[in-house]
Design a protein around this nucleic acid. Structure first.
Lengths: 192, 192
DNA sequence: GGGATTACCTACATGGTTTAGGCAAATGGC
DNA sequence: GCCATTTGCCTAAACCATGTAGGTAATCCC
């Protein structure tokens, strides 16, 4: 009865790879067991359930992505920082689609609060410190940036931009420039 | 052997309601059969597979949403139209979370091209005609609007905005005002 | 080397998906 | 109003995923 050497961590890492290959929602305990050549039930010694496995993959991806974003931001400011921030997310999603999907898994309050999601929020605020926004504008801006980048990446992944000839990279740059210009204006014209 | 009166259309409509109640990914052929009080296998005379059912629900939701957006846009222009457009999407997502999720189902190329997704793109362009954008800026702007609105709605639904005290409605209005201001400036400052 | 722990096993209950084949109810032509 | 056809729903059964219970073999540690 040769031992393969399973552990929670190895399952999570392999699960993340599997997610990139077949899609996050195709990650099942059974599929992961097949990949290790063991019986499905054997995995239940290391993860509590299918849900537990997915949550762990999500947390892992959030950490990994936060590290990449932190690296990208280091030593930059202004439009440079904004572009590096945005590109870090988009590159990660392109390179690791399954893990990127995993980062959007709905976590319960406590789990989210203990996750690297907090670092993501902090970095977003740090980025905006380069622009001169007072509260509550800063929070609005955090939400807008998150929405644009996340939305763009989702739509791009879903193939929504492949019906026109216009280069997605050009749109991406245009959007970053637009946001930079908008934020540089300081606040936003109050709605009449 | 009383007949319940199943049909593809009735299954799709009931499936959409079910999606709103229990979540789009909890929509199963078995659950839908229970709702009609018939055997699971009976539904396979009307839909080809679980995937087919989900695709049909997605197409249905896209149609329904396109109709609502068209209504919202009628007779408006400028910031008014922009806000109505944005609110139509957000209201739909709030009122019909399952169906909104369904609209994001990945469709194959041909299916997407024949879907109401095309109308959505057209309305987005119509909206932007109120601002003075030449190609390729118009395409960039279409993509930006889609990204912001879709991203905001996704993040809001995922509870990402419930960790700060700032009112989500305030951020939403702020974002619409910002986009309006940005678009009203005509083009965007070229990146230096 | 022996006891405790750990890694993996078999077996099974439960429930979703899908195909095949059948009978009964509705429909429509005469 | 009767028969033929079509259609709606059925049962049965194969397949696969989740999750639990309980067992055995490998490894760890003194």
């Amino acid at each position: 009865m040769a031992r393969v050497g399973l552990s929670t961590q190895r399952l999570v890492v392999a699960g993340a790879e599997l997610a990139d290959e077949v899609g996050f929602d195709q990650v099942t305990v059974a599929a992961l067991a097949r990949r290790f050549g063991v019986q499905t039930a054997s995995l239940y010694s290391h993860v509590k359930s299918s849900q537990d496995l997915k949550t762990r993959i999500a947390l892992h991806a959030l950490e990994e992505l936060a590290d990449l974003v932190a690296d990208a931001l280091a030593g930059r400011s202004g439009r440079d920082a904004l572009a590096a921030f945005a590109d870090a997310y988009r590159d990660y999603a392109a390179r690791h689609p399954g893990r990127y999907d995993a980062t959007r898994l709905r976590l319960d309050h406590a789990t989210a609060a203990a996750s690297a999601g907090v670092r993501h929020a902090q970095m977003s605020r740090a980025l905006l410190r380069g622009y001169d926004l007072a509260e509550p504008d800063q929070t609005h801006a955090v939400r807008m940036l998150g929405s644009v980048f996340h939305g763009y990446i989702s739509l791009e992944a879903a193939g929504s931009f492949s019906h026109t000839a216009v280069d997605p990279q050009a749109s991406w740059t245009w959007i970053i420039d637009s946001l930079d210009a908008l934020l540089r204006q300081g606040a936003v014209p109050r709605h009449a």
